[in-house]
């Protein structure tokens, strides 16, 4: 166990935000789950007792008769904002006094940094470069993430859970978002920050970064496993595999979604449903490709003269 190496990674000034991000995410997730549980209990109670649903104050927070439903912004909101500004300023001051912003040697195109890492918030994309060609990892995937986020309000037809925390009423959408944000995005950033060392090789936390380490790893392409050698054969084979993934995956999603989310399924138009399936399958395709690469050393699935996937 090389504690020094571990400390060097964790205490690198530009890694501090990620070290801070993890406990923050845990804290806020717990805060959200706590409130969602309380709301879910209330929802279950009201669903069991329709009479109570008509009269009860519909929030998990206490409310006494005679309380005003609204308060003045001045001072009740402004004091919170003012306090928040002071606290953030204090945190920034302490952080800025105690920790210096990194400054390396002057830029030099002749001396390559190893590992050359992108800023921490882009490390997920850089980690994706291991599994996909740059045009997918660096251009198509970021675009799909942005577009995928933008279509969310238009494909989530569930009217429940608007303006309060709940898990019970939004299992699918919250599950999908948690998978994409917490599992894929944040985990890949953590891998990129704490695991990847020189040559973008995998070093477990506590393992010493060995700059001269060589890994004899023979990556194969999926068509090779099936003994396909002709270029045309590879093009057709890849198209069949990728197309088959979306078709078969689409069918599995259809079977599951129809059964387990019947209300959402009924509400969605064909366009909404197909966009949802496309983004879901593309997102799930990422960990599948990661698994193929890490477990079976498969580099490409679809090989054409113009692009490889």
């Amino acid at each position: 166990m090389d504690w020094h190496q571990l400390w060097e990674i964790v205490s690198a000034p530009d890694n501090v935000p990620i070290v801070a991000l993890v406990p923050l995410l845990i804290f806020y997730t717990a805060l959200a789950v706590k409130q969602a549980r309380a709301n879910d209990r209330l929802i279950a109670e009201l669903e069991a007792n329709p009479q109570e649903a008509k009269t009860r104050y519909r929030k998990a927070w206490p409310f006494k008769p005679g309380w005003q439903k609204e308060v003045h912004v001045w001072p009740f909101l402004l004091r919170v904002e003012f306090l928040a500004a002071i606290i953030v300023t204090a945190i920034l001051m302490v952080w800025s006094i105690s920790l210096n912003a990194p400054l390396e040697e002057p830029s030099n195109p002749n001396v390559t940094m190893n590992p050359a890492k992108a800023p921490w918030y882009f490390l997920g994309l850089q980690e994706m470069l291991v599994y996909f060609d740059p045009w997918i990892a660096g251009v198509v995937m970021p675009t799909l993430i942005i577009v995928g986020l933008m279509v969310v309000p238009y494909i989530d037809t569930n009217p429940l859970g608007n303006g309060y925390y709940t898990l019970r009423q939004r299992r699918f959408s919250i599950g999908t978002f948690a998978f994409g944000f917490l599992f894929l995005w944040v985990t890949m950033i953590l891998i990129g920050t704490f695991i990847r060392g020189p040559g973008w090789q995998w070093f477990w936390p506590g393992q010493t970064w060995d700059h001269s380490r060589l890994i004899y790893e023979v990556n194969r392409d999926l068509p090779d496993l099936f003994g396909i050698t002709s270029n045309m054969g590879k093009v057709v084979f890849g198209a069949v595999v990728v197309g088959g993934y979306y078709l078969l995956g689409g069918f599995i999603v259809f079977a599951l979604f129809r059964r387990h989310q019947p209300k959402d399924y009924r509400r969605m138009s064909l366009l909404q449903y197909s966009i949802m399936v496309f983004f879901l399958l593309t997102m799930v395709g990422l960990p599948i490709k990661m698994g193929l690469r890490l477990a079976m050393h498969i580099k490409y699935v679809w090989i054409t003269p113009y692009f490889n996937i």
């Binding site: 400054l103 390396e104 040697e105 830029s107 030099n108 940094m113 050359a116 992108a118 882009f122």
Partner: peptide
Amino acid sequence: DDQLGFWAVTVGTNM
């Protein structure tokens, strides 16, 4: 314009 920024931007824009 140090090594950190230079290589991060090189990696980023190479995409």
